[in-house]
Design a protein around this nucleic acid. Structure first.
Lengths: 330, 330
DNA sequence: TTGTATGCGTTATCAA
DNA sequence: TTGATAACGCATACAA
């Protein structure tokens, strides 16, 4: 490995003091242009990179963001986490931050990890995904003034923290309108059990859209835990009705994929729309609601950076709108 | 936030010098038991955590590992990366290391990132996934003596670096034997185009297993890029043969899922086995070869830690064996 | 076994 | 506008 190049190396090379080099990096405007350029040339020539540890010791800031990685659950929807993480890493990198990963078995374990990460690594902030009702993590972080952003709205404490979210009700409404536009009148919905904030939100988009055109959703909704097999069984239930639906909106791609398998017509006349636009959906030709995950991740980073690099105006939450990706199934 | 607690705080609380506290942490055995316990109690009482930045400045070690996160490609197989990452984070945490993420557009970009990460954050090591023939990244890292481990064998430079891998040939051999055991004689193979080291390795397991029992694989193998649609089309090609295969081993779950859709028999008499045991496969009842990703990740961490915390004996590469998960399709 | 002094690379403060 | 000095928290060599 080539000799370690520190700020002193650069200073010597550029014939200035260490402080001037530091100024060129942190407050370029207060350095005379010629000096600045000379120092910059030296930095480039030597391939100098400011040592984060030393900088952190002085400034108390690590330029490190932490995010939890969860075990891939369903896999169909698992890629959502993957895409979000990728977008987050990209956006953070562009803003001069790095992303650190951690795992946790449960909320308490996660809180203990915050403590550790904060104490040992001086983390600048956390990005939480999927907060639930009465989340202990957000209150812990808020109480200690630790900067954090959530991907997912705070469902019971509106102004406790900043967030980014995707409007699930709007996404499902778009799906329902598409079905209406293609002539369907009996449109069913397969959702998650009531109580999941995200699921309830999405379902409301279906209900309100049907109500808008004077259609009665009564009896056409079913609830089930996520999964392909569950989607198939639940769809079958709906199709066995006396007056079965001709189209189904599902709260996830997993359920939609299952619903597709319940279609008795080999030609596939049952219209089905899923949610998340997972790669599997794309491969299977499933029409699905696509979340702008890259933008959501970028939004989280923007919010964090705004808090951290502190402008006087407080940043506002961000509600993104999903889009419907039309394919063969609807 | 509570007042910052440093080694000095602990020393004062335990009525010893800072050095003694440091010794309790780094070389406990040289401290008198009573003193040690008193210091430990102080550490616990104050919730002290050694500041990594300061420690790193002194030792030159960051206890940070970096791994690249790739954009979720297919999604079906995407969860593999997700599961590996989770296992890696877990294992690293247990060993006292943290995982940092980075993205890169291509190999050159990745190399530039190494430079940055090494210079700015003093990373202790890198974990690379999926190396290819003549990988420029491994030679770059090796040339600079940067510790790294790859998940995936080095295909042309045997002893350049440590690695962990899963025996793909063995996995496919297990799949093929299973098919043989259930009475199949005409067993086809859908693989990736020749030249992909991983794909070629897996295919060899099929060829050699058939050869062992005196079966001729000739004409029963096809190559295609990965994807569900591709798997379906390729399977159809094989099934259109005069003497079509009754079972298919596929190099990935994506292809296997496609192959399943090509089965003309609605009852599903075509036997199909995939590779990777993705959650989608589980949901669809697809028999598949399962990679021990958690163990692979743990193996990578073990190797890294062995290099970093340097024992005199050099660690050896690790070849893990996959297992066949039987479900409905074979 | 325990305590003291020094330096890691950086930035903030202050003086020139 | 630039330069000298101190301090961040820790671990090591060395002295006690």
């Amino acid at each position: 490995m080539s000799q370690k190049v520190t700020i002193a190396t650069v200073a010597a090379y550029a014939q200035v003091s260490r402080q001037t080099v530091s100024n060129v990096i942190n407050s370029p405007d207060i350095v005379r242009p010629e000096t600045r350029e000379r120092v910059r040339a030296a930095i480039a020539a030597l391939g100098y990179r400011a040592n984060q540890a030393a900088r952190q010791m002085r400034t108390g800031r690590s330029r490190l963001l932490a995010v939890r990685i969860e075990p891939a659950g369903d896999g169909v929807n698992g890629s959502v986490a993957d895409r979000f993480l990728h977008g987050l890493t990209d956006a953070a990198g562009a803003a001069g931050y790095r992303v650190m990963l951690y795992t946790a078995r449960d909320d308490n374990d996660e809180i203990a990890t915050y403590d550790d990460l904060l104490g040992a690594y001086d983390l600048d902030g956390f990005v939480l995904t999927g907060t639930g009702h009465g989340d202990p993590r957000t209150s812990w972080l808020a109480r200690r003034d630790v900067p954090f952003v959530t991907f997912g709205r705070p469902w019971d404490t509106p102004d406790l923290h900043l967030w980014v979210d995707v409007d699930g009700a709007d996404g499902v409404a778009q799906a329902t309108r598409r079905l209406l536009a293609t002539g369907h009148r009996r449109i069913g919905f397969i959702g998650w059990p009531a109580g999941s904030a995200v699921g309830d939100d999405r379902r409301s988009g279906w209900e309100s859209t049907l109500a808008e055109v004077g259609l009665d959703p009564h009896g056409l909704a079913r609830e089930t835990v996520d999964g392909i097999a569950e989607g198939e069984a639940t769809a079958r239930e709906l199709l066995d009705l006396d007056d079965p639906p001709t189209a189904l909106v599902c709260v996830s791609d997993s359920l939609a994929l299952g619903a597709l398998r319940a279609d008795p017509d080999p030609a596939g006349s049952l219209a089905v729309i899923g949610f998340d636009d997972t790669p599997v959906a794309a491969a299977m030709g499933l029409t699905s609601v696509s979340q702008p995950l890259r933008q959501a991740a970028a939004g989280c980073v923007d919010l964090m950076v705004a808090m951290l690099d502190g402008p006087p105006v407080p940043p506002t939450p961000l509600l993104l709108h999903p889009s419907l990706v039309l394919r063969q199934t609807a």
